[in-house]
Amino acid sequence: MRPETLASLNEARKRGRAIVRAVDTKTGEEKLVDPYTDSSALGLAAARAARADVSGPAEVEGRNWFFAVYNPPLDLAITGAVHIAQPLVPMAALAGYRVRIIDPRTAFATEARFPDAALSHDWPDEALAKAPLGPRSALVALTHDPKIDDPGLTAALRSPCFYIGALGSKKTHAARLERLRGNGFTDEDLARINGPIGLDIGARSPAEIAIAILAQMTGVLRAGGEGGRLTARAAASSGPV
């Protein structure tokens, strides 16, 4: 690796930009690829690796490369500085997310209640216009209040974020979908929203509900939404030990 390459990698990481280093492991030859702007064959292959968030070998135009993927941290935007957000923030931080809480009700979103999150007192549409959701973002709507949750969900549906979840019963969710349909979203758009939110693990306490939410986010991010018991998977699993 050339020292200039190392400097460029560190600069991209500092700026929160995805970057892929293609290296020929026989010769050490290397190329830095911006996966989302480079439309060459190498760039497109790098984009696939970046989206999958997996470093690995790739053959491009008859040449073998190893793609080392450097993605920015995962981003979790929560609308609603409510009780479920309190355990969800540290759990998500441990799982590698940078967490931000958006709630215009200043009495809820206080540093005392949320020492580990970036707090925004803007309305969600404003907050998400200032710092948009990207392909490594998740939006979780927790307020039950359409005035706060709906603008956040609307911004999320217009973004490439990988996960959208909304707290609320089936009835609440049906009413929510009806409102969003009125805003011009199709059923296909609205199918992106996980509502009622979370995996069905019988969660009761706020912390358990946070686990159900984070587990569902992880399943969507890593397993395309599929989940279940590891015992049910084939013995050929290559998952982490």
Binding site: R13, V54, V69, N71, P73, L74, L94, A95, G96
Partner: peptide
């Protein structure tokens, strides 16, 4: 995967 959660 290389995120801020890992050692720099």
């Amino acid at each position: 995967m290389n995120t801020h959660a890992e050692l720099d």
